Amino acid sequence: MSVEIALRAARVRYGPLEALHGLDLPVPAGTVTVLLGRNGSGRTTALRALAGTVRLSAGRVVWRGTDVTRLPAHERARRGLCLVPDLEAVYANLTVAENLALSTPGAAPGAVTPPYPELLPLLSRTAGTLSGGERRMLALSRALLAVRARVVLVDEPSLGLAPPVAARTYRSLAALAVEGGAAVVLAEQRVPDGLPPGSLVYELRRGSLAFSGEPAELT
């Protein structure tokens, strides 16, 4: 199981508060990795540190053996990293079709079929007028349509989704890892059902690693 991307002794500070305390977090390729923890545990900060949307105060981000700590977020995205945050994950002033087109470079608005059929009748609507669940499906479409993504980071995948849609979402994200070979990292408050074999769980508590292993070992 090869490591795709990793945090090495990573520390992140927000003013006087330290959110990550020297965190080591290896993320394998072709695997679903779950970052488990309560609010304030450091899950979201770990995702942002991998994506480059927050700076490390110490430590490194290593991607395929190369130190990318100083590489800005947009350059990481160009190299195949996709981040789906829990909030403000869509362009509210653009239509659903325009948001989908941004997920597929070179595609014209209306030419991209959404991975969620529920979005088909909403293509002409502006994203800011959608419900919370509809916005979440639109945001997740960015990851599911990223054909060349090597690292997919999703904060709270099932936020606002009905249970059947959430179950379908987890199957689709698992396919990115199992079939597409991507390193898929999910920030969760509990271990989701239906994880593929070989999935990993890292439990964070107050910015430090409290557990690492397979989901069955945690339960």
Rank of each mutant, 00 (worst) to 15 (best):
L87S: 15
S199F: 03
A89H: 15
E98I: 08
R171C: 03
G198T: 06
A162H: 10
A92Y: 13
P28N: 04
D67C: 00
P115C: 06
L50E: 02
M137G: 01
L56M: 10
G194Y: 00
L176C: 01
P26S: 13
G194S: 07
V27C: 04
T113I: 11
A210D: 12
P215N: 04
L195H: 01
G30M: 05
V147R: 15
R64G: 11
L47F: 13
L23P: 09
V96W: 08
P26W: 09
P157C: 05
A92P: 11
T33S: 13
D86E: 15
A10L: 04
L218Q: 03
A58I: 05
G37T: 09
G40K: 13
Y116L: 04
L50A: 08
A9T: 11
Q189N: 13
L144H: 03
G128C: 11
G59W: 03
T169F: 05
A174T: 01
L204S: 09
A77P: 10
L20N: 12
P163S: 12
L130P: 07
G110E: 09
V32Y: 02
A101K: 06
R206T: 14
A175P: 04
S141E: 01
G132M: 06
R148H: 15
S57Y: 08
G160I: 01
Q189Y: 13
L17Q: 13
L173R: 04
V112S: 08
A182V: 00
P164K: 08
S208N: 07
T69K: 03
R8F: 06
T129E: 14
S41T: 12
R13M: 07
A51S: 15
P197A: 00
V32D: 04
G30P: 09
R150Y: 04
T69C: 09
L17C: 10
H21P: 10
R205P: 05
A210S: 15
A10Y: 04
A162K: 10
E4S: 13
A89W: 08
T69S: 13
V201R: 00
G15T: 07
E203G: 02
G198V: 04
P28I: 03
R150V: 01
L176G: 00
L140D: 02
G15Y: 06
D155W: 03
L25M: 09
V68L: 03
L123Q: 12
A127L: 11
R168N: 07
R13H: 14
L100E: 02
L100S: 03
P28C: 02
N93L: 14
R70L: 15
G15D: 05
A9R: 15
P163E: 07
P105R: 02
V154N: 08
